[in-house]
Design a protein around this nucleic acid. Structure first.
Lengths: 199, 199
DNA sequence: GCTAACTATCTATGGGGATAGTTAGCTGAC
DNA sequence: GTCAGCTAACTATCCCCATAGATAGTTAGC
């Protein structure tokens, strides 16, 4: 039930439509949270029914309209409560490492391809997060700057620091995964070396 | 649909009952894969229907019986095919980092507790994987040794090496997460320092 | 001989999420 | 002036998985 809290997190920054939230998940914070719009719209209505949000019809063009959701004080309370309560670490599933543990079953080239895909995946993440950190440092992160405008100046340093800290952790993790995969590639080469000891 | 492949992976080592598989997930490879028995039993029956496994009734005590599943050649083919095909990296969800990005909303003590929980979680994993590596090195891993008995001697080194490589990667990841959380604890202290500059 | 703990299997229910498809209005380029 | 591409919102279906509980036989200790 954490989609709800991810939505609250984004909506504490500024009111948004379901479409905005869908885009925000797809682009800006994918790999931390994501959701298809088919999940977002019903959840927003449920959250409104629960009093965490209020939706406001906003005109859009001559005839169109859209629904912008604002966080209520009950919503803020719920978000703060979630932030203050410990989160349960559910056992995760890790197909990449499951596969790695049985890599002897794969053709060497397929094994290499798997590790290259691992590298490509985390390199993409790394680039994404590096851009985020640069945005934080240069003040070009629209979300962060909006967040700062309605937070007391005394908290600005903390807000900036926690965001940077989060993204740095994700960068380090991505780099770790890349290094692991590279060690794997070296291991595959090592194990598939055709030994010609007495040329 | 990777539960199927996780089950195949374990069953390539030796025939097992649903109960055995449930225990294997709970204990030996949790954090790489896990599943409740309510998922395992139906999936085993589906896999048998698909011809990947055959189940054999085995007496258990005077009146009891259990069903032991053996991998068929079709099952081996399916597993090998999965090992040789690239796996799709689905965007993950990461509640811990989502929370970290909004840590200014939490009470300092709650923020500390969250990071301590993070450390505890990954330290547990670290200990678990370190034990695995030790088992591999000392030849006391029952699963691995069984796997080796029906694999050609020429492959023993590879099998051992891939297992070790996998667990080492998981250990390094756990250590990374611990270090990240520790940096976070230092950051919280830093940000909540009550400045008394002029005594 | 009883009881606790373990082995073994199965069912029910509901939530979360992936995928796909539908409808409708808006905007700008050609 | 129309067509492509974007914004906006919603619906349907299916699968995976979590939680909980039901049932029954086995083993070992007291």
């Amino acid at each position: 039930m954490s989609l709800r809290h991810a939505l609250l997190a984004l909506l504490t920054v500024e009111p948004m439509t379901g479409y905005d939230l869908s885009k925000a998940f797809q682009a800006s914070v994918s790999h931390v949270w994501h959701a298809p719009d088919s999940q977002i719209y019903p959840e927003l209505r449920r959250m409104e029914a629960d009093g965490l949000l209020v939706g406001a019809e906003v005109p859009w063009g001559p005839r169109g309209k859209k629904r912008e959701y604002h966080v209520t004080t009950a919503g803020l309370d719920a978000f703060r409560a979630w932030m203050n309560e410990p989160l349960s670490y559910t056992r995760e599933r890790d197909p990449a490492h499951l596969k790695a543990a049985y890599l002897e079953w794969a053709e060497p080239d397929a094994a290499r391809a798997a590790l290259h895909a691992h590298i490509a995946n985390f390199d993409e993440q790394r680039v994404e997060w590096l851009a985020k950190v640069r945005e934080i440092d240069t003040g070009t992160s629209t979300m962060l700057e909006k967040r700062l405008t309605h937070a007391p100046a005394s908290e600005h340093a903390s807000i900036r620091a926690y965001k940077r800290y989060t993204y740095e952790g994700l960068i380090a993790r991505a780099e770790h995964e890349i290094q692991w995969a590279e060690r794997g590639l070296a291991l595959i080469d090592e194990l598939n070396k055709t030994d010609v000891p007495l040329g």
